[in-house]
């Protein structure tokens, strides 16, 4: 298998001492927009998982950016899937791999990682039933929600992951309701591993996928993946905006392993609200929030604070 290598990845090699991670598995030449957060998320997940992985992707941007037939950017088995069917199709694959392992023992069929990469629509809306089913069954998959906070494929319509106040083509005055907290919902399923990531922390993505790969059962990883056309900001700002999402507390980074919550080192200090950067620093960089009312801003801040309170109380309960 001929793999693309990035020439100047010395730093990754030094940082990770991982030959696989020096390779690109989601190849250049794909048709992501400039500054696409999703692309960073997938590249880093694949650096951790390597090519012994099969990826299932329901209808989303990712269905398109992989390239039009007969071109294709993923250099590993990749299956497009119906919008609602990411988790269920992946379950079928992982169970069939077990059946194959039974019939062809010693060939490591069971060692193949079954990965889902679905958008927030495919996860928090139409795919939530199948995902909940897979979680309750504890299907042996890694399910990823790459969250660009709207239906981007179909032209920036609201999803239940769109935050309060954000304008989309179906919330032209800004969304009234709040972002659905899917990591919390997944944690409530008591699956062995739930994690949040931001594309501004690629090494964190790498580590979390490395860990997920070793865990048997259903793993859920939710990655905030900013989207320049959808959020309406200059494409060079993607990483900075994702970083601000972490620093303002909009997007807390953590993992819940076998029920134990651990905050990421960049998010942990933000349990203290005074350590968080002002919310406006994040919002003002994106035109989707332009013209948001004072009242809306307060409500969004309250919504974010409530999420933090939930995390804090969970940590507190763990310690006592």
């Amino acid at each position: 298998m001929e793999n693309w290598r990035l020439n100047k990845m010395v730093t990754i090699k030094q940082a990770l001492d991982d030959e696989v991670a020096c390779n690109e598995w989601f190849l250049p030449g794909n048709s992501c927009c400039a500054g696409c957060g999703l692309e960073i998320a997938l590249r880093w997940a694949m650096k951790a998982l390597g090519p012994n992985t099969v990826l299932v992707t329901p209808a989303s941007c990712l269905n398109v950016v992989i390239g039009l037939w007969p071109k294709t950017a993923p250099n590993f088995p990749f299956t497009n899937m119906a919008f609602a069917a990411g988790a269920s199709a992946a379950t079928g694959i992982s169970e069939a791999l077990k059946a194959k392992a039974y019939r062809f023992p010693g060939k490591n069929w069971e060692k193949i990682t079954t990965l889902v990469f679905a958008g927030d629509g495919g996860t928090t809306d139409i795919g939530i039933q199948a995902l909940s089913g897979a979680a309750e069954r504890n299907s042996n998959i890694i399910y990823t929600c790459y969250d660009n906070e709207a239906y981007m494929n179909t032209g920036i319509q609201r999803s239940s992951s769109t935050p309060h106040g954000a304008k989309t083509t179906t919330t032209t005055l800004g969304k009234e309701r709040y972002k659905k907290n899917l990591p919390a919902i997944m944690a409530a399923h008591e699956i062995p591993y739930v994690a949040t990531c931001s594309i501004s922390e690629p090494l964190d993505i790498y580590k979390k996928y490395k860990k997920a790969k070793t865990i048997e059962g259903c793993k859920y990883i939710h990655i905030l993946a900013p989207c320049p056309p959808g959020w309406n900001y200059p494409s060079e700002d993607t990483v900075e905006i994702a970083r601000l999402a972490v620093k303002t507390g909009v997007w807390p980074l953590y993992e819940i392993e076998n029920g134990i919550l651990r905050m990421h080192k960049k998010s942990h200090p933000l349990l203290d609200p005074s350590k968080r950067k002002p919310l406006i620093d994040y919002l003002s960089r994106q035109k989707r929030f332009a013209g948001m009312s004072e009242q809306s801003l307060i409500e969004l801040q309250q919504n974010i604070d409530n999420d933090w309170k939930m995390l804090a109380s969970r940590l507190h309960a763990q310690e006592s």
Binding site: M81, A85, S88, G92, I93, A99, K100
Partner: peptide, 21 residues
């Protein structure tokens, strides 16, 4: 696989059959 709906029945059948079973 005891799934949670028929849509998932057929989706998981797709995954399983594609895998060669």
């Amino acid at each position: 696989i005891k799934v949670e709906s028929e849509h998932s029945v057929m989706a998981s059948m797709v995954g399983a059959s594609m895998t060669g079973t």
